[in-house]
């Protein structure tokens, strides 16, 4: 009995999603900011994937005879103090920053969603306990939490993703929990529970679809913050290690050369700005279209 009900509910939800999409697509296309953001993000993703084609020069190859050349046709963004091609480093940096952003946000949303689902669905003691933990995690400003985690794990690109990811967990957990609190009052959830559908099934099959939109919006907007945080930690020496062409790190490496070779630090910074700008536009747009009342 439970089986049939659940299996009947699923395709219905799918059909619902399709019509919803058909309704949203034109609105998305009309939203200028969203489209601009989408174009930027897709463009950057393409650059990241085809980095060896876009910038065929080896981003970590040192050639001191070519050090500190200003932007010119052979080196569009000039070269750094080791003679490495800055354009090539910026292009290869795209894949690193996007990877860091995606993985850290994936960690944050996955853990955050699970925690939020459990807290919101079970309520009472479980909720109270989880929310206390979340509260005290929120007592640490995100960057400080990440700093603390890095100081324990040690600086590396991998630990950076973990640190920034964990630092984002409470944000998503709280968002998911509050959405679940509203959703679980709905009749069909109540019905499923009454007829004894297993709780994991309820959580994943019935509750999750309700919170997908807010999570997508939050994750997109969170991606921008994540990329900035990761770059910042690398900037102060607590993230990626040389010779990785990571943008935050490149800004640090060019710092001493600001006066005589402004291009070393400037271009990676512009790259970060464009990336986060694109992601933010996309996030804002998605919010406007999917859930205008959501305050993030």
């Amino acid at each position: 009995m439970a089986e049939t009900l659940a299996s009947r509910a699923a395709p219905a939800a799918g059909a619902h999603a399709r019509t919803r999409w058909q309704m949203l697509a034109p609105r998305m296309r009309r939203h200028k900011g969203l489209m601009v953001g989408l174009v930027i993000v897709v463009f950057l993703a393409l650059i990241a994937v085809f980095r060896d084609v876009v910038a065929p020069q080896n981003p970590i190859k040192i050639d001191v005879t070519a050090a500190l050349q200003s932007p010119e046709p052979a080196h569009w963004f000039g070269t750094d103090q080791y003679g490495r091609d800055v354009f090539s480093r910026v292009v290869h940096g795209a894949s690193i920053s996007l990877t860091v952003g995606v993985i850290a946000v994936a960690i944050a949303t996955t853990v955050g969603t699970m925690v939020g689902l459990v807290a919101g669905y079970y309520g009472r003691a479980v909720d109270a306990l989880i929310m206390r933990i979340i509260d005290f995690m929120l007592a640490f400003p995100g960057i400080l939490l990440a700093l603390g985690i890095v100081s324990v794990l040690g600086p590396s690109l991998q630990n950076l993703m973990i640190a920034v990811g964990i630092a984002g967990v409470p944000f998503y957990a709280r968002l998911v929990r509050s959405t679940v609190l509203v959703a679980k009052e709905q009749l069909y959830i109540e019905a499923a529970r009454v007829i004894g559908v297993p709780i994991p099934v309820i959580l994943v099959r019935h509750l999750l679809p309700n919170i997908v939109a807010p999570i997508i919006i939050a994750a997109t907007l969170g991606m921008g913050i994540t990329i900035l945080q990761a770059a910042g930690l690398s900037f102060v020496g607590l993230g990626s290690q040389p010779p990785t062409p990571e943008w935050g790190r490149m800004i640090t490496e060019g710092r001493d050369y600001l006066r005589d070779a402004w291009w070393i630090s400037t271009f990676p910074g512009v790259a970060i700005m464009i990336t986060v700008f694109g992601v933010n536009l996309l996030g804002d747009g998605l919010r406007d279209v999917l859930d205008p009342r959501l305050r993030i």
Binding site: P268, G269, V276
Partner: peptide
């Protein structure tokens, strides 16, 4: 754009 700018880069 302001939100998207790394503060430390702006500082430089």
């Amino acid at each position: 754009l302001g939100i998207s700018m790394p503060s430390f880069w702006l500082a430089l």
